[in-house]
Computed example of a mutant assay.
Amino acid sequence: MTNQRTRPVAGTERFIPQHLLEFLVSLETTRSTNDVWDLILELAQSLRLTVVDYVYATDFRNWEQAQFIRTTFDSTWLDYVKQFPHIRHTSNFRMHAVHKLTPIMVGPAYLDEMGDISPEKRRHVMLSAKMGLQAGVGFPLRMGDPGQAAVLAFGGDFTRAEFDALMAEHGWTLHAAALSAHTRYTELFKAEFIERNELTEKQKELVRLVGQGLMDKQIAHELGISFSAVRQRLAAVQQKTGAQNRADLAALAMRVGLVADPLIRDHRDDLTVFLSMGDGKTGREVRPEPPATAAE
């Protein structure tokens, strides 16, 4: 087995389950969100998991408006949503993943452990069973962005005993794979924003300059275009991206990597570190002494 730099996987990289090792090595080579999704499906299929459901919200407080869903459920699920609108509010994402980090068992196989649930939630569980989810597990997923939340669920047509056995053998693999896949997926999802919204190179450059804090006249000088042309280009970018103002565009520039994250402070040299020792709570900046000059 080789990694993305085509070197053999070192022996020290083999302390994790083989399924997970193979997944992580392949994850290194993914170049698009579609690649990551395909890899998740391959892992699921290797474990006989026929249902995979991935829900992501960039702001769960406005979760119906800002999210993507990738799922093996077919379009029948959309018919259920229209027939039973409560499905949107009784999902494992809405009821658990936006609030907690603990994995949650799902499906009618675990109904007796769900406690006192509403009739609407019970109906949701049974509708999922009709789509093939008799037993499964959902892994809440988070990153550092405020409001961001997601859940990646795996399951299939298993009895409780069968799924408990599968989790005992492969639960760690699924959990670690879900966490790593979500990190990689969201990284690529941000990078694909420019392509998804069909921004031209000139429009991309405009977003970068706004992210650097330049005003319209400065941007016009930088790009060698008129002030009115800058305004027209800004309007076009806002229409494509949905940005409401300059602050939105500046935030966008940082999120997609066109400008540096201001929270990640540059150090004065490569050897600068923040050293925290002992209790691991206190620390100080450690900088090497400057080299002595010949005069000294």
Rank of each mutant, 00 (worst) to 15 (best):
L78C: 10
L43G: 03
R61D: 13
G132N: 09
S75K: 12
V55M: 09
H86M: 08
D59C: 04
D38L: 09
A129C: 03
D59M: 06
V51G: 07
Q65D: 15
R88S: 09
D38K: 15
H99P: 06
P108H: 04
M131L: 15
T50E: 05
M105N: 08
K130W: 08
S128P: 06
V81A: 13
W63F: 11
R61M: 14
L78S: 14
H86C: 10
M95H: 06
T102M: 02
V51L: 14
V51D: 09
R48P: 07
R48D: 01
D59T: 14
F73I: 07
E42Q: 15
V137H: 01
I69Y: 15
D59K: 11
V55K: 13
H89D: 13
F84V: 07
F68G: 12
L49E: 06
L49C: 09
A135Y: 00
K121Y: 00
I117K: 03
Q134G: 06
A44W: 02
M105F: 15
K82V: 10
L41V: 07
P119E: 02
Q67F: 06
Y110W: 04
L39C: 05
R122I: 08
V125C: 00
L49I: 04
P119V: 08
H96Y: 13
A97K: 05
D74Y: 08
R48N: 15
L47G: 02
G136C: 01
M95G: 08
F84G: 09
D38S: 14
G132D: 05
M114D: 00
D79P: 04
R70D: 07
L41W: 06
G107E: 01
D53F: 02
S128Q: 14
S91R: 10
R123C: 07
R123V: 05
G115H: 00
A57I: 05
P103Y: 01
I87M: 09
D53I: 04
R122T: 10
K121L: 00
F60A: 03
M131F: 09
F93M: 06
V98K: 02
H86T: 09
I87N: 15
Q83D: 11
K121E: 00
L111A: 04
D53Q: 07
H124I: 06
E120W: 10
M126T: 07
V137Y: 01
H99E: 09
M105P: 08
K100W: 08
L111I: 14
N92S: 10
Y110H: 11
A135D: 00
A97H: 08
K100D: 13
D116W: 05
D53M: 01
M95A: 14
K100R: 12
S128C: 14
Y54F: 13
T72H: 03
G138C: 00
T90P: 05
L127D: 02
P108A: 10
T72L: 12
D116A: 15
P119S: 03
V55E: 14
I117H: 02
R70S: 11
F93H: 04
I40M: 12
T102P: 04
K82A: 09
Q45L: 08
P119G: 02
Y56P: 07
A97Q: 07
